[in-house]
Design a protein around this nucleic acid. Structure first.
Lengths: 221, 221
DNA sequence: TCTAGGAGTTTGATGAGTCAAACATTCCGC
DNA sequence: GCGGAATGTTTGACTCATCAAACTCCTAGA
């Protein structure tokens, strides 16, 4: 189990990368969210990298690995369920619950969490509209959509492929575009009708937009 | 605010010194309760002394100062209210809540604690019979009272018997209700004017309330 | 009264988490 | 494309919490 501090960094990185304006999770921003100095954040992010929870290179942006994303989702889930519980069952005010949940989220067992979730009727989002990741770390936030809807520069995870033809699937497999794979959208050229993708650990490739449209992705954090 | 570790040491010292058999809070015992090695406990107890929370001299017993007792009481109060809350409101089983409360007690704010206390009707003891210190750190601890004042389901230890008649005492001895014995209050039927008790290791028995009133007990841990 | 062994202490080490200050790199505006 | 501002990194230091190993103290029984 990750320490409290590690959980806080993971959560910070996840929420930063989820922010609409596609802001990278940079050291300074992470430090600001967690409430430490940049030097501390640097040290910690290195630890996350060593632990396989994030990927990071000097002067580069920080990205969570699948494992890190899973862990961060879990923290977020705990946070939001606790918040909702404190408001709906205990009757605290929304203004008070954030700070409270900030501490309780690290102390709650899976068993108790599930019980609270049950009492609340297994909510899918909190009243802020923030999605509550399910017990498997998935959140509605990321309803899969065609990769062609991603902004250039975005990262996503392949979720589903609509074309079931063997030839197409084999092509995707060779390219490294299997479900679960992270992929970066390098460029979209609507005039040429093409999209350039770079699957993690592979070389980039260019597809036609109609073909790419059959590849559904969820935004990656 | 004391760290989590400090709170755990304080709690350990308080419960050790409260134990009926007048056992001193020694380093080895504290270490065992907290779950660390004696060398660690020595180091920590020195810190408690420096912080004015405990008094301690080399090779001597550890005693809490007023300030330390106050802080320890507070931890105990948080622990027991959380336990009670988890059982009565959340519906967890008694067997599960101790470990949970062990972590939550360090993460709960005064505001939330008070709210839980309110939801529970400001209880004075938990179903184990453990007293819940009030917000000022005072606890009913161990003032013996008639067993008829216990809540059904409570556990207690026989402290004193007011009726000195031999016949009555012999009856109690045969039933297993000797001072020091732990006893569970199974049921109280005020209409029938009877109380059903189950001394530890014996079969249950039913007494009339006027008779039972002469049996004084202390809440058991 | 002497001593064996249990209880307690000290020492030196470690890892987590943090900061300030000095240094390095990157990026943006001209 | 250059230079300063913004950003990021390194270094050295500190506290908290912990342990193992070596040591010291105390006491109960022969």
């Amino acid at each position: 189990m990750a320490t409290e501090a590690v959980e806080n960094y993971l959560k910070a990185i996840l929420t930063l990368s989820q922010e609409s304006d596609a802001a990278d999770a940079t050291i300074t921003r992470i430090a600001a969210v967690v409430g430490v100095t940049p030097s501390t954040a640097t040290t910690m992010v290195k630890r996350l990298d060593r632990a396989g929870l994030a990927r990071y290179e000097r002067y580069g942006a920080v990205r969570l690995t699948a494992k890190g994303r899973r862990a961060a989702s879990d923290v977020l889930r705990r946070h939001r369920i606790v918040e909702l519980f404190l408001v709906q069952i205990v009757g605290l005010d929304w203004s008070e619950v954030h700070a409270e949940a900030e501490r309780l989220e690290h102390a709650i067992s899976p068993r108790l969490l599930d019980r609270l979730d049950e009492m609340l009727g297994r909510p899918r989002s909190d009243p802020h509209g923030d999605p509550i990741p399910d017990a498997d770390g998935r959140s509605d936030h990321a309803r899969p959509g065609p990769i062609t809807a991603c902004a250039p520069g975005a990262h996503a995870a392949v979720a589903r492929v609509l074309d079931q033809g063997a030839e197409f699937l084999q092509f995707l497999a060779r390219a490294g575009l299997t479900p679960g794979t992270r992929v970066a959208v390098v460029a979209i050229d609507s005039i040429a009708g093409s999209i350039t993708l770079k699957p993690e650990g592979r070389t980039a490739l260019t597809l036609s937009l109609p073909v790419a449209q059959r590849i559904l992705v969820t935004p990656a954090f």
